[in-house]
Design a protein around this nucleic acid. Structure first.
Lengths: 153, 153
DNA sequence: AATGAAAGCGGACCGTT
DNA sequence: AACGGTCCGCTTTCATT
């Protein structure tokens, strides 16, 4: 389990993954070789899974974002799963318990494109689409503390 | 709108946001000062919105992930929105059209914690919870091409 | 597992095209 | 808007604790 120093490093990288080892060293109170060593181990252990960027989809003309719940018809589950994976406008998808097998995020340029994509699923699944209006919570980390110091308020 | 070189840079950073300017220069066929200049402009224009890391929640004991749809009772929408924001285990939340006002992602350590958190909403909203079993599509970028060279297969 | 020293490489700032 | 050159600073390696 990551210790407190690891958590400081992770939080610092979450804010800005391009921070230099030296900057991370200052933040954590370690030397830069130690930081490098810790990052290496965190990657190795699968704690840090990716260094990545966030892009504004609107900059690329993706004016609409939708959450689509998908309920495949009997026997069509694998086909639907492959279809979702093959359509790049689905930028995220979870397989979940309950009636809706999949919950996916869809980025499209227009209502017409939304319709066209949902249409591809329509012969093998029922879909339920909600257009994203705003995002009250942007992707963030859950609390990283080991011990539940906060009694789960 | 970002040109093709910008797209190459963005895709390269999406894969690994810690790539050096020199590495990005080689990938894109530019010099490193030019790469630095382009990144600066992409940030300025709000195309690149963050450099960040992805963490495995399980490494921190978050054994369960759920998608929660939340339908506030009349007049309780703002209160619910603030509540979601205040509970750090909600790591993502969109406000959407339709009956369910919010769709949120919840990370918890146990079923008990799941219950405890949903309980906090229960007097002001109806919730519908789906446990995430697998993630067929991990967060990715939609196609970045300007022109729809792919006729939306 | 972390440190300091040293060497090698990358980034930032020039002036130029 | 991109380039090459230069200088400075960071990263990486290694020996040490």
């Amino acid at each position: 389990m990551p210790d407190e120093t690891d958590q400081i490093l992770i939080a610092a990288l979450m804010e800005d993954s391009r921070r230099s080892l030296k900057a991370l060293a200052q933040i954590s109170g370690l030397s830069s070789p130690s930081v490098a060593e810790r990052l290496r181990r965190l990657e190795e252990r699968g704690v840090l899974t990716a260094y990545t960027v966030t892009v504004d989809p609107k900059s690329f003309g993706y004016q609409l974002q939708a959450i689509v719940r998908i309920r495949p018809m009997p026997g069509r589950m694998h086909a639907i799963e492959r279809l979702i994976q093959a359509i790049p406008e689905f930028t995220e998808c979870d397989k979940v318990t309950g009636e809706d097998c999949f919950v996916a995020r869809l980025n499209v340029r227009s209502m017409e494109q939304l319709d066209a994509i949902l249409d591809k699923l329509s012969d093998q699944a029922e879909t339920n689409t909600s257009i994203v209006k705003t995002t009250p919570v942007k992707r963030r980390l859950p609390p990283l503390k080991h011990y539940a110091t906060t009694p789960e308020k």
